[in-house]
Simulated scan of single mutants.
Amino acid sequence: MSSSSALRELQHELETKANDLSKLQKEIAKNHQVRKKYTVQLGENELVLKELDLLNEDANVFKLIGPVLVKQDLAEAKANVRKRIDYISAELKRLDGTLQDLEEKQNSKKDAVSI
């Protein structure tokens, strides 16, 4: 009887570890999805900045706010895009750190499950 209960306990422990591993894998997938979105946004904003750099200082620049185009100063538009690029880059760096932590946890969970 004791070997049967020990076996059930071991099975329960293994199931718990497997569930934890599954949760970590879902978090990693979500991290990759968010990171992909930020990477696309970074590329778009870098392209916008390159386009703004091509303009003359007296060029008209408009910003879309809701359904309305509002005239904006070129220097202000460049500053806003640079801030956005800085923010997105910081978020990508943060996501990379989180991903590294999650992958380390995943590897330790895999080791625990495989033992």
Rank of each mutant, 00 (worst) to 15 (best):
Q106P: 02
E13Q: 12
R8N: 08
E15W: 09
V113K: 10
S4C: 08
Q33C: 07
L49N: 02
E9W: 11
H12S: 03
A77N: 04
A77Y: 00
A18E: 10
L102K: 15
I88D: 00
E46M: 09
R8F: 04
A75L: 04
L64D: 05
S5D: 06
A18D: 03
Q33H: 11
V68F: 06
K93F: 09
K78L: 01
E104A: 13
G66R: 02
V68T: 12
L49G: 02
Y38K: 15
D101T: 10
S5L: 10
E57S: 06
T39F: 05
S2G: 14
V81G: 01
I85Q: 12
E13M: 14
E44P: 02
Q100K: 13
V113Y: 11
E57Q: 13
V40T: 10
S22E: 10
E44G: 01
L42P: 07
A112I: 03
K93P: 02
A75H: 08
K36V: 07
L54W: 11
R94V: 05
E15F: 07
A90L: 12
E15H: 09
K71I: 01
D20P: 02
L21C: 03
V68P: 01
S2Y: 09
A79C: 00
V61L: 01
Q33S: 05
G43H: 01
D53I: 01
V48G: 00
R8A: 06
L49K: 14
L92R: 07
V113H: 12
D73F: 02
D101E: 15
A75V: 05
R94E: 08
I28Y: 04
Q33E: 15
A18W: 05
A59W: 00
A79V: 00
E103S: 05
D101S: 05
K83I: 07
E15A: 09
T39I: 08
K30Y: 05
K93T: 08
